[in-house]
Amino acid sequence: MLRQVTAIRYVTPLREGGSLPGVVEADDLGTYVAKFSGAGQGGHPFEYAVIRLVPRVERGEQINVGVLLYCQQRDFLAARTHLDADRVRALAPDVDLPAVAAVLDSLDRTCSGDGPATRMRLGERFRWLAAPRSTMIQAGPVHTGLAVDPAAELDRLMVALVR
């Protein structure tokens, strides 16, 4: 009997055509070749980045604290965050947790268009939030995928990558 896995990230197409074959990453972290029917019309392309807390930038140690997801076709941009105080204290007991929580809260406000972000389009906001930084709160590399419901995908990524 074949094992069933769920594709979580579309890595690359193998060739163009109606059947849309490509390489995908699955929920078991394996890489598979998949053949999609219907010309890939089952989902909308999206981009996401994991938000990381790097308490001491010079050491490079990090804790995943959120996910930022952008789907242009659905006009969707949102961030979900979760700050596990015990994990942070285990890595860096002197971190100012209220200050970190305030920065994480500002990610959500920026996604919503508060403050200077009001003048930015969703894609611009995503690029600005996902840009490399040398601060305590950093976005990891941008990844792509396909999703029918970007909000549900964001929740799924939070469980898989942060919690």
Rank of each mutant, 00 (worst) to 15 (best):
G42Q: 10
G42M: 14
G42V: 12
G42W: 15
G43I: 12
G43E: 12
G43F: 13
G43N: 10
H44A: 13
H44S: 15
H44G: 12
P45E: 14
P45V: 10
P45W: 12
P45T: 09
P45L: 15
P45S: 14
P45Q: 12
F46P: 07
F46G: 15
E47F: 15
E47P: 14
E47G: 14
E47T: 11
E47M: 13
Y48D: 10
Y48R: 06
Y48G: 07
Y48N: 03
Y48M: 09
Y48L: 13
A49E: 12
A49C: 14
A49R: 03
A49H: 07
A49F: 09
A49Y: 06
V50C: 12
V50D: 13
V50W: 12
V50M: 09
I51C: 11
I51M: 14
I51H: 07
I51K: 08
I51F: 09
I51E: 07
R52S: 10
R52Q: 15
R52C: 14
R52D: 13
L53G: 04
L53M: 06
L53N: 05
L53R: 01
P55F: 00
P55K: 02
P55S: 01
P55N: 00
P55L: 03
R56V: 10
R56C: 05
R56I: 05
R56P: 03
R56T: 06
V57R: 03
V57E: 05
V57S: 07
V57T: 03
V57P: 02
E58I: 02
E58C: 06
E58W: 01
E58K: 10
R59D: 06
R59M: 07
R59I: 03
G60T: 09
G60N: 00
G60W: 03
G60M: 01
E61W: 04
E61G: 03
E61N: 05
Q62Y: 03
Q62A: 05
Q62T: 04
Q62D: 01
Q62G: 03
Q62W: 01
I63H: 01
I63C: 04
I63A: 06
I63T: 04
N64F: 04
V65E: 02
V65K: 02
V65R: 03
V65I: 00
G66V: 04
G66H: 01
G66C: 00
G66R: 00
G66P: 01
V67G: 10
V67D: 08
V67A: 06
V67S: 03
L68T: 02
L68P: 05
L68W: 02
L68D: 04
L69S: 09
L69K: 00
L69G: 03
L69Y: 01
Y70R: 06
Y70N: 07
Y70H: 12
Y70G: 08
C71D: 10
C71L: 09
C71Y: 11
C71P: 08
C71K: 00
Q72H: 15
Q72D: 15
Q72L: 15
Q72T: 14
Q72V: 14
Q73A: 15
Q73Y: 15
Q73N: 13
Q73E: 14
Q73G: 13
R74D: 15
D75I: 10
D75A: 15
D75V: 01
F76N: 10
F76G: 06
F76A: 11
F76M: 08
F76K: 01
F76C: 08
L77P: 09
L77R: 08
L77G: 12
A78F: 13
A78P: 07
A78T: 04
A78I: 05
A78M: 10
A79W: 06
A79M: 06
A79C: 13
A79H: 07
A79T: 03
